[in-house]
């Protein structure tokens, strides 16, 4: 496997929710053009850590984040950084498909409009088409771009949300259990899409399905009780993990 540059580097990140110490001393280098999976049991901190990467935790009052998180070498928690601009660079897709109650076209055009990415209608059309193609849903919706996004099936809605996330031309895509509300076919389509997205983006995915992590990612980090226990090539994690806690978890033993 060719080595890619480090896109996000986190050093000794701590997260507290009030008195709860949710993330303990996590350091990780996330590579560009790579799918990195975060796995671990419920409450292990994987989603919390994911949300640190685009400052989604800022919206929670009692949440405190400390340590260093750098995107391309720049501290994303620096006071000069505008979280809205940051989230345009670090997009996010959630567990439940959440299209806006607008047309398919407007769902995708929303981000480029508020960030002023298009100067004309035709340019915006092009951005929307590119994003829908990247979301692997263009062929299914091109004839009904002005139908409501909420009228699509669950799997289509999730791909629409991915298209919406890539429309602002982010560099990083964070996905928080993007397939857990989808059926197996829609899941396979989204997984195929994730693999394609890797060519242009740095992708980080939180998943409860270990098989999904094994299928889509090149790097896997295992979280347990707020610690990042092990981080390695996915093939190593699933064939010969170093830490007995990782081994217990991935083989389905009580850890």
């Amino acid at each position: 496997m060719t080595t890619h540059a480090t896109k996000i580097s986190a050093e000794q990140v701590q997260v507290h929710y009030g008195d709860t110490h949710a993330i303990k001393d996590v350091s990780i280098g996330i590579l560009d053009n790579t799918v990195t999976a975060f796995i671990g049991p419920s409450g292990c901190g994987k989603s919390t850590f994911l949300r640190c990467l685009n400052r989604m935790n800022d919206t929670i009052d009692i949440c405190r984040v400390s340590g260093d998180i750098k995107l391309d070498g720049h501290d994303i928690y620096d006071p000069s950084v505008d979280p809205v601009q940051l989230r345009a660079r670090v997009g996010m897709v959630f567990q439940k498909p959440n299209p806006f109650p607008k047309s398919i076209y407007d769902n995708v055009a929303y981000g480029p409009r508020i960030h002023g990415l298009a100067r004309s209608k035709s340019e915006l059309d092009e951005i929307v088409e590119t994003a829908l193609r990247r979301g692997a849903i263009w062929d299914e919706v091109k004839d009904r771009l002005h139908a409501p996004g909420t009228g699509l099936s669950g799997g289509q809605q999730q791909r629409l949300c991915i298209a919406r996330a890539v429309a602002t031309q982010p560099e990083v895509l964070l996905m928080d259990e993007p397939c857990s509300a989808l059926d197996p076919i829609a899941t396979a389509q989204v997984e195929e899409l994730i693999d394609e997205l890797r060519e242009n983006f740095c992708v980080v995915i939180v998943t409860h399905s270990m098989q999904q992590a094994a299928r889509v990612s090149q790097k896997t980090a295992f979280f347990h009780l707020g610690h990042m226990v092990e981080y390695d090539d996915t093939s190593t994690i699933f064939t010969n993990p170093k830490d007995p806690r990782t081994e217990s978890y991935i083989t389905g033993r009580i850890g």
Partner: peptide, 9 residues
Amino acid sequence: RAPTAIDLR
């Protein structure tokens, strides 16, 4: 069962 790690080996 899709065995992994020690189970796979």
